[in-house]
Design a protein around this nucleic acid. Sequence first.
RNA 1: GUGAGUGUAGCUCAAUGGUUAGAGCACUGGACUGUGGCUCCAGGGGUUGUGGGUUCGAGUCCCAUCACUCACCCCA
Length: 426
Amino acid sequence: MSVKFRTIKGVQDILPPRTYLWQRVEDAAKRIFSLYGFSEIRTPIIEFTELFVRSIGEDTDIVEKEMYTFQDRAGRSITLRPEGTASVVRAYIQNNLYNLPAPQKFYYNGPMFRYERPQKGRYRQFHQIGVEAFAVDAPYVEAELIEMLWLLLEELGMENLNTEVNSIGCSECRPDYKKKLLNYLEGNLGSLCADCMRRYRHNPLRVFDCKVPSCKEIITGAPKITEFLCENCGDHFKRFLSYLKKLDIPYSINPSMVRGLDYYTRTVFEVTTTSLGAQNAVAAGGRYDTLVEEFGGPRTPAAGFAIGMERLITLLEEKPFEPPRPDVYIVSLGDEATDVAYTVASSLRREGLQAELSYGTGSLKSQLRRADRFNATLALIIGEDELRRGTLTCKRLSDGFQVEVKLTDLITDIKKYLNLSLNIEY
RNA sequence: GUGAGUGUAGCUCAAUGGUUAGAGCACUGGACUGUGGCUCCAGGGGUUGUGGGUUCGAGUCCCAUCACUCACCCCA
């Protein structure tokens, strides 16, 4: 068979049973975010290119080389969103959502697009579940966000995760620190690797991430941003950490963590794992106190985070997972019996039971084999004998127990045997 | 954008340059006429990613291309 069409590089079909994992994550997120007062917001997948350039930052890799940008028929520059925050902030201002009682809290879920070379945990179309909280200045918000994130990850049974936190200061203290760092690096320019030379000019904070041993050595002596925060930022960070402690959330301070987007201020955080290879961030976020105002809205502090769905799903797939299975599989022999099977399936489904049927194709043996393959709890058999007696043979597949039940008592009997089989499993 | 590795049945993989490209799993059927899982047997399923080249002969060697994987860069 020759396949005529394939997916584009770096995008993928998400198929069952994997989709059940996606649903599990989405359902849990929806439920937990609601507990914290977050409402769903849905924004378009395409926006004017300028929105992302202005929010993410002109000098970032995302804007420089990773955006899916095209001209529409009227010649406007349009971009497939590479992340979620910019659109939410745009919607917040455009729809005057700041007039709602503060704080305003939103969550979103959907595909993002970045033109990158794919690898483990990194795709050109990927999905994020994210949240944004507006109009609260207090560091309690960041702590609460992380608490909510942890609750979700815990509920999903995630283990071996680390939360790393840092403060990258504000427009007041960060430039001062940057100068100090540049001064320090300047004295070691000769020993830096080629990448770090570029970082030195481009994004000096990134030198902290370098894996080259000689660079690492230089970095250990470099000034740390947490030591140069202004009074307000330092105080904010301290309070943030104390809230985390109060909420009993394990964390470690990573003074070298910087985020890739320009809009972050003060608190930044990442939840990482060791089992994802190089792409180890499962979720990440931070505070962005100036973005709303920069976009023409009122002065509004804000904070948020986003979860990388594919990465989370990859972690969940390390554990055994059982997709939903039919309560009953209906086996029928002959056209007349299959007619009955069809109406039986219908009435069972109306009772909220998952019923699968064979439509009478194949021998009894092969139909039962299929019932087994479907992992059904019960097999219901309708043949000539049952047809004549107005009954069904009900067979419990876990232990082979079998009983004939009257069609008129079907619903109550089936429910009984479904419960019974559950009891046996426990 | 850079580097490395891999492309053979639906899946996981065999096949010294030499007959008609095989096996396990999965699927379908049978052994067992109305009873699943275990076992055994049989069957269907392939343009060996694609296009060139070398050769008497290419799944195998060479080149190109595409895809996938991993890493760098960067990020969720």
